[in-house]
Design a protein around this nucleic acid. Structure first.
Lengths: 198, 198, 198, 198
DNA sequence: GATGAATGAGTATTCATTCAT
DNA sequence: TATGAATGAATACTCATTCAT
């Protein structure tokens, strides 16, 4: 069951994970530049050369965290696409469910989210990918007649990403709101608008 | 015209502005850490020690740019509050106008916006202030019966900030959309929602 | 009289030369790897960052010394070619003169010689160039009938370079012999051989 | 066959030789400093700590290779002294034979030669020893009247070493010339010189 | 007021070498 | 005997900041 190249037993893997965890914490807290290798290794109780036993450079470990975020997020979304649609019978419920899941993922991975969704250069790409995914979904519903045909779904998708981005930061990651509640509020707003119907 | 501090004459002021402009360009382009003092002074055609004649530190000049953004934005918003409400007779028009103005300001100050709205630590505070302002407006309209009473205006305000934040980055600052168009789309979305009324 | 790019006054140039001199001494003494930047700056009475004010890297200053050696050597040889041939009437005398000059140059630049002729990667190229130059000279004399026609001048040229290389190290640079004497011995050996004519 | 130190068995010896061979290859190719222990052990398919089971340090293994070169060379020369002189009847033939043998040894041990003759600090000593040996031979022939009495045999010996040194590098080790040919050319040059007798 | 020159204090990275098992 | 893992000790290089003139 050779894990990764020629070396590293269970002990090494453990230490590797320890470093990744420490790095995640520090990066999430202080950002890339303000986080020094010395801070990471201190938190992981490891010497500085040991760090380079497991990671090529500071940039490399940061990138690895970003990749973890990205891959886990993609996996998470793929799974969501497979599971859902079965039980939820209303459109509103389905959309709410999808957004809830994204929030849930962010909630469960607060550090990776801070790093991959807010700090990395790739975060731009990641958000764009999400926006595209959302847009495709919206377009399908629009074709199915659920949404107004005069609305530019690209802008809507971008807006939704913006909303998620902001609420994640101001309400979710600090524990002020729960995924379900946030998703519900957003969906109601986007579906029905603010305007009083009277 | 006796204006003239202890030290710098008109020439000095010119140089100071030159440095601020150069710093704005560089910071907006490369971010805080990747921007070196040497890059700023080179762009401003000024020697390194001269820099410290006008600014205490790298952080100080960055902060000054952030402050400029914040103050100009506040001034801009205050003016908007005074001017508007006169001509626009519909609620939708008024809201659209307000958002348009924010976008317009961002469009006119792309570098300061990048710095003060996206890179600075204060951007968090700035966005919060905008969110509060928006929320207060929304709450008033809600009290006036224009908006549903069952909607949490805090979340709406935050959402709007998120939307503005994202669309500014992905559509406005790169010239893909104009303030009016963006504002219109947003307002329609938020007022009436996506749902097909049939 | 702007010397070199935009900056550096006389003071800077002085320090630059100081560093070059110190580096030459240290490199000649300890070789590239065993010479640390700290040794160079200490010898030059300069701080480490100052070093980087004048040279991009350790490799760069070493290369500069190598280039100096190479260029001075080329200039020296060119000059020799122009001057000589006028007074010296015998072939032997002319050849001796040329070799003497090379030794003289090495003697006057012992450190650069150690660096550029023995330590640098380019030394291979430099020696080859000298060998080619010598070979061309020998071939001409051969065509003129001064030298045996059955001798491979390429090998002779290479041999002469080998002789110069070794005698420079074992006799010249440590002051055991003088250029003239060495050149005389070599030329006599190469022209007439060892064999007793009886 | 009770040979067997305290620790290493036959397997150990094999490994030791493997390491020596790998080290020879790497040192010959990249030099001392650019060769890392990690490169040696990788080439020998051995772990890093194993290396230290057989050699005290990087310097030690390098030194061992240098010693091997030196001892083998001495042995080789001693053998040559015993064997020759019997069959070769002419002086020229005898000298040619001796030089041929040295070249042959270098050709058969290219890596050790590169290390011991060109890279090691001892190479200076080794070359000096060879020079002394040669000088003694030459002096004897001189006393026997074969060589001019007005020639400084010390310089001749040094010159011969220089020639061998250079031709080995530029013609022998890269396969451009064969020992016999090189030796012949050298001896003819040194015995009879370049000068056309007419 | 202006500048050429200088530097203190970091900071990532490397590598030979050695534990602990 | 063998090895996965660890590390002490350096080392080149950077950059914001400040003298001295």
């Amino acid at each position: 069951m050779g894990r990764r190249g020629r070396k590293k037993g269970a002990d090494g893997e453990k230490r590797r994970r320890l470093l990744l965890q420490a790095a995640a914490t520090e990066f999430a807290l202080h950002g890339y530049h303000e986080t020094k290798i010395s801070m990471i290794v201190e938190k992981a109780n490891v010497t500085q050369p040991s760090f380079y036993l497991y990671f090529q450079s500071k940039e490399a470990i940061f990138q690895e965290l970003v990749d973890m975020f990205q891959q886990q997020l993609i996996m998470f979304i793929k799974q969501s696409l497979l599971e859902e649609g079965l039980e939820k019978h209303t459109l509103e419920g389905e959309i709410t469910e999808r957004i809830t899941r994204i929030f849930t993922f962010f909630q469960e991975q607060p550090q990776l989210t801070r790093i991959g969704f807010y700090m990395a250069n790739e975060s731009k790409v990641i958000k764009n990918q999400i926006a595209i995914l959302i847009e495709q979904n919206l377009l399908e519903e629009q074709r199915n007649g659920y949404f107004r045909s005069d609305t530019d779904m690209h802008t809507v998708a971008e807006s939704l990403v913006g909303i998620i981005e902001r609420l994640t930061k101001t309400r979710l990651l600090n524990g002020l709101s729960k995924p379900e509640k946030l998703a519900n509020e957003i969906v109601r707003l986007l579906l029905y608008g603010l305007k009083n119907e009277t």
